[in-house]
Computed example of a mutant assay.
Amino acid sequence: MQLYHHPYSMDSQKVRLALEEKGIDYTSYHVNPLTGKNMDVLFFRMNQSAKLPVFQNGSHIIFQAIDIIQYIEKLSVSLNGEDNPINTKVTEWVERIDLWSPKIFTLAHVPEKYRLFVSKFVRRVVIARMVQAPDLASVYHLKLREAYDTDEKLKNPENLKQSEEKLCHLLDDAEIQLGITKYLAGEDYTMADSMFIPVLARIVLLDLKEEYITCRPNVSAYYNMVKRRPSFKKVIGKYFQGWRKYKTLLRTWCFLHIRDLFRRY
Rank of each mutant, 00 (worst) to 15 (best):
N87L: 15
I97A: 13
I72Y: 04
S76A: 10
E73G: 03
W93A: 11
I61P: 05
S59Y: 14
N84I: 00
S78R: 09
S49C: 06
S101A: 01
E92P: 04
L99V: 11
F44P: 12
E82N: 06
P53Q: 04
S76I: 00
I61R: 15
E95M: 07
E73I: 08
E73C: 03
M46C: 02
V41Y: 00
K74G: 00
W93R: 15
V77N: 07
K51P: 02
W93K: 13
L79E: 00
L75W: 04
R45C: 08
I86S: 01
S59R: 15
M46W: 15
I86D: 08
I68F: 05
K89F: 11
K74D: 02
H60A: 12
A50H: 05
N80H: 14
A50I: 03
S76N: 08
L99Q: 15
D40I: 05
L42V: 05
F63C: 08
D67W: 07
S78M: 01
T88S: 14
R96T: 02
S76R: 12
I69V: 06
I66E: 09
I68P: 00
Q70M: 04
T91M: 14
F43N: 04
R96H: 09
M46H: 07
V94C: 13
I62A: 07
F55S: 09
Y71Q: 04
W100Q: 06
Q64D: 10
L42P: 13
S101E: 12
I72V: 00
G81F: 02
S49M: 02
I66Q: 09
K51C: 03
V54N: 12
G58P: 05
G81M: 03
I86F: 00
I62N: 13
I86C: 09
Q70P: 07
W100N: 05
T88C: 12
S78I: 01
F43K: 05
Y71H: 01
G81W: 00
S49P: 10
D40W: 02
Q64R: 13
D67P: 00
I68A: 07
I86M: 11
S78K: 02
F43Y: 12
V41G: 05
I62C: 07
V94D: 13
L75H: 01
G58Q: 06
K89Q: 11
E92W: 15
H60Y: 11
V54T: 07
S101T: 12
Y71P: 04
I97T: 06
G81S: 03
N80E: 03
D83T: 09
G81P: 02
R45Q: 05
F44L: 04
R96G: 08
F63G: 07
M46T: 11
V41N: 04
I69C: 04
N80P: 12
Q56L: 02
Q64L: 09
E92M: 11
Y71V: 02
M46D: 14
P102L: 09
P102R: 12
L52V: 09
T88E: 15
D83E: 14
P102S: 11
T88L: 14
M46I: 15
E95A: 13
V94S: 13
Q48N: 10
R96I: 02
D83G: 13
S49K: 08
